[in-house]
Amino acid sequence: MAVGLFPGARRGRLLAVERGKRVLSGVVEPIAYIQRLTRMYEHLGYPAYQWVRNDDRPPFVPLSKPLAECRLGLIASGGIYAAGQVAFHFKDDTSIRAIPREAPIASLRTAHFAYDQADARADPNCVFPLGTLRGLVAEGVLGELASHAYTFMGGIYSARRVQEEVAPALVQRLIDERVDIALLVPV
């Protein structure tokens, strides 16, 4: 399925600003996941899913130093665990795994119910860019990585539990790790 990068794709496909948000000129519009998943949940007989909608101005703090001096904390929700750790289960698993920044990529695994894991298992950098980020640290683009990356499963049906349990636990780890910036990678 995967083909090479479309030759023209790296040459400015960003269009002008529309209400402060840039618009992509793709061949086909981005997939409407909210509509698609809402229909699927209805079909499965689940209670109506409450999509998180924030219309406020989100909190925002500018970077305090150049990226090359920043300590970066990586958080990913693709169900990543390292061999030797307990895998995630698929029923609102709110637990967190700590993956050492020097973990061999070959020791990384995935356990997730909601996406095709074939490529992520062949190369975890598809959803967990630990190797990519290590390379950028070695190049001097980034200062350093936090001692651990933190992962969870993500497919948690209750937004309240994410808001009140998972997110605060992740943020506490970022604070404890004294990171300057955080990169969050969902699936």
Partner: peptide
């Protein structure tokens, strides 16, 4: 994941969310 990003930012940590959706 956006919720965690908002909480990180509120705690003073600039946070960038990757997205496929």
């Amino acid at each position: 994941m956006g919720l965690a990003a908002r909480q990180a930012e509120a705690a003073g940590i600039p946070a960038l969310c990757m997205s496929s959706a």
